[in-house]
Design a protein around this nucleic acid. Structure first.
Lengths: 363, 363
DNA sequence: TGTGGCATGGGTAACGTTTTCCACGATGTT
DNA sequence: AACATCGTGGAAAACGTTACCCATGCCACA
């Protein structure tokens, strides 16, 4: 044979080969009710012998596509990659296939991508840190099962999975205050939109910072540089903070990249870390764990968030009318080498290597 | 209106609303031949008024799905993200939507993912650094237009886009030899499979290294540590190389992560970079560019590779029988602060601040 | 007045699955 | 014995789009 340009095997071929109806084959494929064990075996054998694979396009026309779409705003963000790992791990033994839609930074792009996923009749959507309006999200959720990850604010249309950013910020303040710091500053991502001010993690972190400062009797020390969650934002924010009359002894950056920018500004100012200034990040990304950087950071078990999202989504696909659920996970603080007691502190402790330092190999 | 639970608008609705046939609407949708400008306008208006969006599932059953699948073996690899950016940028103004399939490290996983994409009747596939056998790739390419990125070896069934890894390795050796180095060692990703030995970039880099060393009259200095392209691989490889009787004055790591591992091993051995040992990476990832690391590295324009891949794929979708094309791009070397002349060279330079120490320096 | 080509529009049969409904025999119940 | 029930299997109608082919009207040309 030269090149048969194989016509794809269809359910009809399988049915003929097993000498049953296509209905029967379909039932076996979907584990549906109404097929005896004998039938199941017979059909399964035909499927295996012919190497049959169902066409998702055809399935989508009537039933499910067994496809779950995940929207990721930024592929380079390692935290998002962790979430994705959690999703795929949770979905590993199911029939669902995960597909990612890349390149959706900005509301317009995001809308386009979500539409594209709906057009492709995906069975469910996981939206990671979406920026769309609440109304829009509700509309989306009404037309397809949806789980929103990393955005606060509960809805009756979609499930959510978040990390407790307020608690994360509190962990940071607590850690620093426990080390003896009082002038603890924060670099936040500037936000004006009133809804986002409530729902976006960055705003929650800033709120958590304020609350925790007050709780530790440091209300008068609250000092926030409002820039953006970028390397440059960290650099500029730290510069701003360091130029204060009384400069902070500790900086809580709202994200790891921000902390890296801050580190550069601090070093540029001729100061040392953690000798003169302690620095804490957020996300516990691979960068934070990297030996030479060794950044104290808040860890948000991304894998578990992803796993929860996947579980909720599969549940909702099975029962579209169940009540919405809102999972909030607790972060932990990973102490590394960018935090220590303030220079002017009483106890002249020899800076001990914190327990969280890692061997070079598990970076 | 309470909650209509909107039935999706179909092509029939549009046809009725515009008072034409579904065939006409379909022609307008696909920019197909046989529709007058007047017809186009009328139908387009109906589409806009009704907010109609075609169902990809239904389309896939007869024609195209306007979906392009990209297989990425490792999301965390920033170089792959660049490639993806190039693909989406090139496809930006077309009707195609890019979808990513994650979690395909390993031959088995890769096969599963590729099958999944074919099942979903994608119009074309971009496979980034696939590990499947040549036969398998050919089979895939026979059933769907395919472009393979980052794997050498030409095929008559699929197009390829690669970076010239041999040239890249030569750039490194040239740079180091130009600085006066003679003992230039290499850390490679171990490979035994004969096909991969020819086709995989890592093998090509090792070959390029050997060739370049010979060309520079350094054949007797060839020294390779065979580990893996991971952080740990770099750490162990460097440890191995540093324990040689005559230790190398320069290490060419086959990838940036490998270089980072090597940096840790070097620092652990009490040596400085680039004072005692120069280090070069490959990929010019964001990590390499990061100020405190500032790693000299080979840059492979990932965006351009992606753009080329997308262009080739769209071409092939349009004409499945055209000859296969094989694009090979040239890398460049980005010199940063991890390379300098060898310590025993003539000039008694004061040891500069090695980039690998923890204190952040600049941007 | 035919004849052929071209531009335009539509009718209809796919495409491969799932869903809905019905038939049939076996079994249990009154 | 008559009647409901259950378990199993199949026929046929969707699902929304595109491909294929034909009908029509118009024009140019012999």
């Amino acid at each position: 044979m030269p090149k048969p340009a194989h016509r794809r095997i269809t359910i009809v071929d399988v049915a003929r080969h097993a000498q049953v109806s296509t209905t029967a084959v379909s039932k076996v494929l979907r584990n549906a009710y109404g097929a005896s064990p004998a039938m199941r075996a017979k059909v399964q054998q035909a499927i295996d012998e012919l190497g049959y694979r169902p066409s998702a396009a055809a399935r989508g026309l009537r039933g499910q596509t067994y496809t779950i779409g995940v929207m990721i705003p930024e592929l380079r963000n390692l935290f998002f990659a962790d979430i994705l790992d959690g999703i795929t791990a949770q979905l590993g033994d199911t029939a669902y296939q995960v597909l990612l839609a890349p390149g959706c930074n900005g509301e317009k792009e995001e809308a386009r991508v979500i539409e594209a996923m709906i057009d492709r009749s995906m069975d469910g959507l996981v939206l990671i840190a979406p920026v769309s309006s609440r109304t829009r999200l509700n509309n989306v959720a009404r037309s397809v099962p949806t789980v929103v990850v990393g955005r606060h604010g509960s809805s009756t249309a979609y499930d959510t999975v978040t990390d407790d950013d307020v608690a994360g910020a509190a962990l940071v303040v607590e850690h620093l205050a426990g080390l003896g710091h009082r002038r603890i500053a924060h670099i936040e991502h500037h936000e004006t939109d009133p809804v986002r001010l409530l729902e976006m993690p960055n705003a929650q972190r800033a709120n958590g910072y304020r609350d925790a400062m007050r709780e530790h009797g440091l209300a008068d020390q609250i000092d926030i540089a409002s820039t953006s969650y970028t390397h440059q934002g960290g650099y500029l924010g730290a510069k701003q903070l360091l130029s204060r009359d009384q400069r902070p002894t500790a900086i809580f950056a709202g994200a790891d990249v921000v902390a890296l920018g801050a580190l550069e500004a601090i070093s540029e100012a001729g100061l040392s870390v953690p000798g003169d200034v302690s620095v804490v990040g957020y996300d516990n990304s691979a960068l934070a764990a990297f030996g030479p950087i060794s950044l104290t950071s808040v860890d948000q078990d991304g894998r578990q968030m992803g796993a929860n999202a996947a579980r909720l989504l599969v549940d909702r696909i099975a029962d579209r009318d169940r009540r919405t659920a809102h999972v909030k996970l607790s972060p932990t603080l990973v102490v590394r080498r960018t935090t220590a007691g303030p220079a002017r502190a009483a106890a002249p402790r020899p800076a001990p290597d914190p327990a969280a330092t890692r061997t070079p190999t598990d970076g």
